[in-house]
Design a protein around this nucleic acid. Structure first.
Lengths: 214, 214, 214, 214
DNA sequence: CATGAATGAGTATTCATTCAT
DNA sequence: GATGAATGAATACTCATTCAT
């Protein structure tokens, strides 16, 4: 997109300010607790201005999310295709990417874990948040599949669920923390690694035992 | 506390009715979605009466939480002291108790995981929610300690943290679900068991490897 | 209804003030153009107070209408049953009653002629505005039937329609007038009489001619 | 008005587009329910452009009304002057023209019957809506005069009033109808005819009786 | 001439809370 | 001790209108 006139520049700035404000406030206090007027105040504009750029509050959340979401998706895709990394290392990096991302974009917790469903009458379904979200979840599931050497099916589903519980638990624990992301990571990144490592070890053992059982 | 006059007795009843109503409604629909007036209607009193017994809505939530919280704590304590159960089985039952409890008292997720800190000007600090909460967490930590045969220290702390991530992840995932708690459990209780089992297996292996390392 | 305490008295006053304000403003400017806040200001209370007494704006309109509507209905019923008046005189008085009523309760124009349909899930259907309205219309239709000596059927329907066009035309013309109702009547009551008289004469002739035709 | 430059021509086009759009939308959904932005979108211009040509929304309505109003006036004038039609037939056609016109231009009801008074600071008073409206009303009055063979005076005024009550009643009844104008007419045009016929019959009789009285 | 950006005032409704009784 | 009345602040969202360009 080429920005030509001063007007357009200013508009772009305003939009950015709104997004930045929403990002900040949603991140700090969650989608529901933040009002449009507060966002406007934070962004330094009138609350009506927000409606120039976004159809409604939910659209703002979506707009807010699509860009970073797609960015993350890109990174995960790239990582998944990497030829030189082991499945294990890929998973580790994914966890890291994912958690960091969620904590850096704190409204992402809501996006990933709490937004109910995509709007049905979405005009551009290819841009839909749920789609991207599901694709990303799937990347992780596929990696888990490779890593655990499991076929599609109940077992994989169960392990994936558990894996996501852990992701959710970690992200949820620190989403509202006042500690900086870097601080959290320097303090806890090995804990996070251990968490997933333990899970994988456990999964392996469980799968093997069941195999023997059968 | 000795209840003397009829008046005081009736007052106690009203208070109980309010707590019961709030418990029910918060449990069904969550703290935020329930209004003071709804609670009053359910309790069969005026909404202003609530303010006689509780400073504000949040105080009601806290008061409300103390009882079940202490109940749960009691159950956990009893379980911890049970002479006939293995540490393993105790943990399993605790997970179950805890998760069920949180899902049955939907507002508990907030209590356990999102209440920032105890209120500074708490009148009866010995009743403080945080205290009970921490005590309960500690019960689990102790059990984990026994189970993993670990001394107090970094390793135990790390494992406990991870364990709580999992608890939080599970509870968080289903707190807002519209499925009934029973439905969730009949569908997923084995998944929950596998989750913690996998963790314990993993922890064990990790600990042993590090022991050998050292 | 017995009003006992001072409180109840004050409440009744407030409610009355709200109704009076709504009556005035709806009458002056129509239901849609008047906001709840304006009504509150006119009534000298907060806009939220209105919601204590009325579920929503529409309920206020209904409350506003039911009493006078039923009053009018009572009068029309009484009139219809009067044994000493000719059908002609009854109709004349009805026109008068009806027009005066609409002009004295200026929001009635909206009620009678512009409120679309009753709310489907009405709790007390016997109090429903539409019902009363239709009953009243029917009183007039029946009287017309007697007066014109017509059977139920197309002809009666057609004459009734025309009769109501005239009623509506008159009421509509003066609903928004700034002249007082009394002034309007002293200036125009004979004109109103002539209007309906002319219609009845015309109906009679038309009916007879068609009878001869057949 | 002589249009010289290309610029002026384009401007004239834009203005026309705005009027056309407003005409369409006001006609379809009424003045109040249509927003300036919707008109702009329909007209293919920016909403601010509208303010170049019209002082405000109301001015647009007025401008909008002048043309069709004058058109109607032209038709009525032509009809009035028609040498081959009886006064009776002329009246019938006028009713028809007038009612159709009002229903086809839904905002016309407001124009004819509800606009309080001409705006004081009108720039071109000779184009004022009220003037045209009054002229048109007068055409009908004159025709009524001929038809009833009445001199100017109280009686004619009274009959005219009544006649307009009927017009207003009919138009008012169906202005907000969701039925198409054609549907309304095919269902009710004979009823409309009967209405005015009845009135004229009645007027005749009333006038003759009074003549005899005198 | 034309426009995008921006805004203040407005909409109905809900809420937790306070006050006088 | 208990309550009905009352309220200010808040909610998301819309509108006609203005201003700088």
């Amino acid at each position: 997109m080429i920005i030509a006139t001063k007007k357009e520049l200013r508009a772009e700035e305003t939009k950015r300010a709104i997004i930045a404000a929403a990002e900040k406030l949603f991140g700090e206090r969650g989608y529901d607790s933040v009002s449009i007027r507060e966002i406007a105040k934070e962004a330094g504009c009138s609350h009506t201005t927000i409606y120039i750029y976004f159809q409604d509050k939910e659209a703002l959340l979506h707009a807010l999310s699509m860009q970073p979401l797609q960015l993350l998706k890109g990174e995960l895709d790239t990582l998944a295709k990497d030829a030189f990394l082991s499945a294990d290392d890929k998973l580790k990096r994914m966890n890291d990417l994912f958690i960091r991302f969620c904590l850096n974009n704190r409204s992402m917790y809501a996006i990933f874990f709490e937004v109910k469903s995509s709007r049905v009458d979405e005009l551009e379904p290819e841009l839909d948040i749920n789609r991207v979200r599901n694709q990303m979840f799937n990347v992780i599931v596929q990696l888990l599949k490779t890593n655990l050497n499991l076929p599609e099916g109940e077992q994989l589903l169960s392990c994936s669920r558990i894996y996501f519980y852990m992701l959710r638990g970690i992200v949820g624990t620190y989403t509202h923390s006042e500690e900086s992301v870097d601080a959290i990571f320097s303090r806890l990144s090995t804990t996070f690694d251990h968490a997933f490592e333990a899970l994988l070890i456990g999964f392996d053992k469980q799968i093997n035992e069941r195999r023997i059982d059968t």
